[in-house]
């Protein structure tokens, strides 16, 4: 088995089935969030679903759900300013969750704070009408507002052609406990691999070589708004972590291959794989519109 074939097996092993307990719990919590918000604000705000599921970059060991919740331009039911909207939504969610401010989002935990639901609700207001760009409130940065476009973010990642590389990069980051935001990591990988061709293993190696040799010069820009300064995501501490973790991993790969990094993967037969695929969708039971 080649290094790239092995890495694809790692990805197969990390695939989160749609009928898995984690996905069911995620969907149930999402529904609960929508219900809470609908009870307070009705149906005018636009609900969206983002995160790793929407982008195709979900891993068993690393997944999240972004729930943008945008008010139409002329809707002031949650407040006039972005800050008021953010705080109003935060208040509604805090009836049933322990909430944590996380950038432009409200991260949800159970009331005791023991369970992280991996759900980020992102309150905002559309720049025009009820579609397209939105203004968000960067609660933890001290800024007044940030303009962005979720669809463009999702499309940028989804159409990057490097989804597998991103998933492996996320898995590597999670296992190395590097405090780099997913969005920043995605943008870095897309940028580094832009115009680079090679096998999956070569591309992953290229990313790590950049992290090792060029960590001081790494930069990211918001694909939906180049005016957004995202450099705050790449602190000196994060750059140093990336550099040393990449160096260690590349040394490990040189001596023991990628298996020494990600570990053994148990083989599945084709029938086992197909059975798992057949059960993956929650609506996979066939029907028939004839008697």
């Amino acid at each position: 088995m080649t290094e790239s074939e092995y890495l694809r097996k790692v990805l197969g092993d990390q695939t989160l089935a749609d009928d898995s307990q984690e996905m069911k719990e995620l969907r149930d919590e999402r529904d609960n969030v929508w219900r809470l918000l609908a009870a307070e604000y009705g149906t005018a705000p636009v609900r969206r679903v983002g995160g790793s599921g929407a982008k195709g970059t979900m891993n068993k060991e690393d997944f999240d759900l972004d729930l943008p919740y945008y008010f139409p331009r002329d809707d002031d039911s949650a407040g006039d300013t972005l800050k008021e909207i953010y705080e109003s939504v935060e208040g509604v969610l805090s009836k049933e969750y322990r909430v944590e401010r996380k950038g432009v989002a409200v991260r949800l935990h159970d009331k005791e704070g023991k369970i992280d639901f991996h759900i980020d609700v992102v309150p905002g207001r559309f720049v025009n009408g009820s579609d397209g760009d939105a203004f968000l409130f960067p609660a933890t940065s001290g800024k007044e507002r940030l303009q962005t476009n979720l669809e463009e973010h999702i499309a940028h990642v989804k159409n990057s052609g490097v989804i597998d590389e991103i998933r492996l990069g996320k898995l590597w980051r999670t296992r190395k406990k590097i405090q780099l935001k997913t969005f920043a990591l995605e943008l870095l990988i897309i940028d580094i691999l832009s115009g680079f061709s090679g096998t999956l293993a070569e591309k992953l190696e290229k990313v790590l070589i950049e992290f090792r040799d060029n960590s001081e010069n790494l930069s990211i820009s918001d694909p939906a708004n180049t005016g957004n300064d995202l450099s705050g995501m790449l602190t000196t501490e994060v750059r140093n972590f990336l550099k040393s973790a990449a160096r260690d991993t590349l040394n490990t790969v040189r001596s023991g291959g990628w298996k020494a990094v990600f570990g053994e993967i148990q083989e599945e037969s084709s029938n086992e794989v197909l059975r798992r695929i057949s059960l993956a969708s929650p609506i996979s039971r066939p029907w028939g519109y004839h008697e």
Binding site: D18, L274, R275, I277, S278, L279, A280, S281, I283, S284, R285, P286, W287, G288, Y289, H290, E291
Partner: peptide, 26 residues
């Protein structure tokens, strides 16, 4: 999602086995 699961299920039915995901009545 659903189509991929459906076709994977068909591979079992083609082997004379039941649908792994069960079936809805018609």
């Amino acid at each position: 999602g659903p189509l991929r699961s459906h076709l994977a299920g068909q591979t079992f039915v083609l082997q004379g086995l039941p649908w792994p995901q069960k079936e809805w009545p018609h």
